[in-house]
Simulated assay, not measured.
Amino acid sequence: MTIEVVWASHALPELNAAFGDFVARHIDGCTGFRDFVSFGVIENDQLIACVIYNNYYPQHGVIEFSAASISKRWLTRPVLKEMFGYPFEQLGCQMVAVRVAETNRAMAKICEDFGFNKYVIPRLHGRDEAEIIFTFTDDQWANHAVNRKSRS
């Protein structure tokens, strides 16, 4: 199994748009993204996941991201380091946020298992559905098990 991370941005607009479309197609009710940076996860020449970063507020040190996948194999240690390295190390953010519909149990479980803070906002995803705002800080990332050296 060969997994590769491919980044896209305004410098590669077609690729960036394709990654954005991938995420939008895989999130119920998502109509797309504007002004974003993205990366795709490629396994054996097939796109299996994408991450979109948008709503960047440098003055607050906060950025949102959205992710979608067609395989559970995408969340490897190297991919996680890329995913959190961009906001925390490259941009200098102090927090990332992820918005998840309460019916998206798979993504909510990933965020909960990873250690995100969870805030349920009634009706934020529509009259009859709450949305969960998950947050994760640079301190949480610095102390996360992904960053601990494995024993040899």
Rank of each mutant, 00 (worst) to 15 (best):
V5C: 10
V6M: 07
W7E: 05
H10K: 15
L12W: 11
P13R: 05
F19N: 02
A24F: 05
A24R: 03
H26I: 07
G29W: 02
C30T: 05
G32K: 01
R34W: 15
R34S: 13
D35W: 03
I42N: 03
E43D: 01
D45S: 11
Q46V: 05
Q46L: 10
Q46C: 11
L47V: 06
C50S: 09
C50R: 01
V51N: 04
H60G: 10
S66G: 05
A68H: 03
K72I: 15
R73Y: 14
W74L: 01
R77F: 11
M83W: 03
Y86I: 12
Y86S: 06
L91A: 03
L91C: 07
Q94S: 07
Q94M: 08
M95T: 05
V98R: 10
E102C: 13
A106G: 05
A106M: 10
M107S: 14
E112V: 13
D113E: 06
V120W: 10
I121T: 11
P122F: 12
L124D: 08
L124T: 07
H125V: 12
D128W: 07
D128I: 10
E129N: 09
A130H: 10
D138Y: 07
D139E: 14
A142K: 12
A145T: 11
V146F: 02
N147L: 12
R151E: 03
